[in-house]
């Protein structure tokens, strides 16, 4: 465990609470992609399968895994019930099947080991790297976003960005290297680069998030 990883995990946790807070304060899920949320639930359910047999290995990991699965399921539940009037299937249209299919293909081609758990783990890593695309696509179509939504996206993007120095740290100091997670994590962070730029140049200077 190192500082980068702790900060990354906290950032991930904070992003989920910002999202729930956004829905509660605006009484709406407008601007949030249901497709991205469903992809994240798939990511957590396929990666955290080991919660059933490694519960005693690390209380920190196990509790975080439970929180990620349950809070994302709760977010989806709220979006499909309480706040469903704000859902806009006309805008949230990214072809999600390609993402799932592509992640599935990479998982079958490059797992660490051919076991159900390892292939699903690899699938979850690749799927996570692109799960934000429906959300970013939606943002591009609407051309603007509520400030609280941009804070959510920033915290979610910062989480994987913070994992990169964590991987470097582990590589140099612990001799630990996980090529699948590292390559996918770099791709995931790169997908956010446009968003990070606009967040930095507009939102942090008190302006509204608007695409040029």
């Amino acid at each position: 465990m190192n500082l980068f990883r702790i900060l990354g995990d906290l950032s991930h946790l904070v992003s989920i609470f910002i999202l729930l807070q956004k829905m509660r304060s605006t009484r709406s899920c407008a601007g949030i992609s249901l497709r991205t949320q469903i992809l994240y639930l798939m990511v957590y359910c396929t990666r955290y399968l080991d919660i059933f047999w490694t519960f005693n290995a690390s209380l920190y990991n196990s509790s975080m895994k439970l929180v990620f699965i349950l809070s994302t399921a709760y977010t989806i539940y709220l979006m499909r019930t309480v706040y469903k009037t704000a859902l806009d299937p006309q805008i949230d249209t990214f072809a999600t099947y390609y993402l799932v299919g592509g992640a599935g293909l990479l998982a079958v081609l490059f797992p660490y080991k051919y076991t159900v758990y390892e292939v699903l783990w690899s699938f979850s890593i690749w799927l996570e790297s692109v799960a934000i695309l429906p959300q970013l696509f939606m943002l591009q179509r609407t051309g603007e976003a509520e400030t609280i939504t941009t804070h959510y996206l920033f915290a979610l993007g910062a989480y994987r960005a913070l994992y990169i120095p964590n991987w470097l740290y582990r590589w140099f100091l612990e001799g630990h290297f996980d090529p699948i997670a590292t390559v996918a994590g770099i791709i995931q962070t790169l997908l956010y680069s446009d968003f990070f730029y606009i967040y930095y140049t507009k939102v942090l200077k008190g302006k509204k998030f608007e695409l040029p």
């Binding site: 990883r5 995990d9 991930h12 990666r47 080991d50 690390s58 990991n61 975080m64 895994k65 990620f68 797992p111 660490y112 080991k113 076991t115 758990y117 390892e118 783990w121 994992y163 964590n166 630990h176 996980d178 997670a181």
Partner: peptide, 10 residues
């Protein structure tokens, strides 16, 4: 590398 035992990150 022992797969399945090294996934200690979230």
């Amino acid at each position: 590398r022992e797969a399945g035992k090294t996934h200690d990150e979230l």
